[in-house]
Design a protein around this nucleic acid. Sequence first.
DNA 1: CCGGTGCTAACACCT
DNA 2: TTAGCACCGG
Length: 715
Amino acid sequence: MEELIRDLNPPQREAVTAGDGPVLVVAGPGSGKTRVITHRIAWLLSRGVPPWRIIAITFTNKAADEMRERVLRLVPAGTGLWVSTFHSACVRILRREIEALGYKNSFTIYDTADRDRLLKKIMEEEGFSPRDVRPAALGRRISWFKNRALGPGEHLGAGNEIDVILEKVWPVYRERMKTANALDFDDLLLLTLELFHRFPSVKEKWSGRFLHVLVDEFQDTNKIQYDLAKNLSSAHGNIMVVGDPDQSIYGFRGAQVRNILDFEKDFPAARIVKLEQNYRSTEKILRAAGTVISNNLARKEKDLWTEKRGGEPLDLLMAPTAEEEALRVAGRVRSWLASGVSPGEIAVFYRVNARSRLLEAAFRAEGIDYRVVGALSFYQRREIKDVLAWLRLVVNPFDEISFSRAVSAPPRGVGGKSLERILARARSLGLSPVDVAADPAGIPRLTSKAKEGLAAMAKLLGSLRADAGRAPALEMVRRALEETGYLDWIHETADPLEARDREANLDELLSAAAQVDERDPEGGLAAFLERVSLVSDQDGLASKGEVVQLMTLHTAKGLEFDAVAIVGLEEGTLPHLFSIDSEEGVEEERRLFYVGVTRARKHLLLSFAESMMSAGEWREMERSRFLGEIPQDVFNSWGPEEEDQEEDPEEERDLLPPAPPGEGPGPGARVRHGSYGEGVIKAVRGDKRNKRLVVDFGEAGTKILLLEFSDLEFL
DNA sequence: CCGGTGCTAACACCT
DNA sequence: TTAGCACCGG
């Protein structure tokens, strides 16, 4: 027991060895908060608390896995611990309890894309055009309300077009989700909470089971999650929450820093421990972070300090365009590598996913191996979603969205119209779409090909279902691939290159299944689908060795690297345009920047571009206000001021299209294009770098070309 | 009904 | 640049 606390500083030790009752740990970046949680769990175990009576909530599955490992290293007898995200914990509870709420425990988890597909269908049925309001916008709005514990009818939809549509669509969405025996991400939390509220005995059962509740990243919990944590600890009040108000970056998901204040109110007896010594970053990095964050008015003062004096100066980089910025950053990464920083210890952060494309191109050009963490996930790919649809149907034949997908992957002569008739019939008979497909005779106006196809589909699903309980996940995925004819279909339709690409992805899916089998031999298909539904951006697939990592600032939360580059420090990017007009919004952006900066141990590079291409237009950018908030003496040079004057006119001229003589190529001028041949300019639109030419190329048609990239020869 | 083609609009952050 | 959609021919 002694060695558990030997290497801890006094406040860490206080938190780890705290007695029963509520504890709030306010932990600055790099102050050893993960250490505190793992040692706390180990401490509890060593004092005889059975592992299955401890639940620790983390932000991602990856963090959960790591935490479990670290605890087991300290106390090997820790099997049975619950370490998971809120979402995973809720799924585990719901699998056992959800029947009380009228769902079947074989429920499917819908991701955002599934949700939006269903919403689109409902909108069409209700006579709304998915063009006026995008289904995804509705979906986000529903999620927005749910994350704030508001239901249909409870929202204040005065005049807002989305909310008017929502009024009609949301109730139907609820019904349909229930019919499909499906839950969206928000439902996982909400229904668990509903369960606790409506069935006190269930709540007592679970809160009685867990003697200790620990919540990491508490500053990013929303009201629902806070209520869940409170409910889970209601029997004994042994709850420890760990967080840092300055790192709260999920306001858009309903996260409220207020939870930290409420915690002190809800638990007046709470012990409060502050961790202020930073073990991660150099003094320069820490000072930059500290002065930036001190510009937030809505915060509690906190003094982070470190014993690491000095450190390397921060690096500031300015580039005329975002492309150029990416290239220069890649170049800087190359010199980090050359100076001995290992690739896995280097990361590049950006505010918006779109920025990763430029970086990827630059890294490829530089020949540096990299990995994009998160972003358009593997599981969003078409072939993956198709196969998963089959597998989800095996477990839950009521899942309409998966049925709609599987029925035409591969196609079997059933299109939109027939599909609607099948689903309608299923709903009216209270059967699953798969049941209806098994007996296609009852469905009007089907071709014989469609009937055969449907019967075969139902038969195959039945046979897969018979094995689903006992076969390993790997075998189920392989059977789905082969017996549905999916693999063959890919090779018949797609061009060979694309087919190979897709098959490679499917191979990865097979390895993912094998991995689940290995971790959880009893779990089978159900465990696989669950894991797949709840992967987070940080989780990724099997990590591809030691390479440079690219990710958003949000994904960077909780990670640390020797060398960090943060790109896109422009007004409108960071802080983002959508946040710029409210003080609250800007403060959250500032925290996001703070999170990014504090990920770095030794080297920090900050960069921005003076212009970028977005939505097909060049936009001039200004450097982010946050840069101006950093004390100048932490930089190796505060160059941009002078550079602005010397370099700018030069660079600007290089980038602008050559000034045309006189009024330049105007309407009527003849031009030649590499592939379209000769043509005549019909009109000129836009100005400066956004100047576009409308050119009639005769047989090749009329094209609109951005002058800068048009490569035209003027005749 | 299926699948390819060409047009249009848009483009946070995440479980 | 791309994703998603309407449209059209087989």
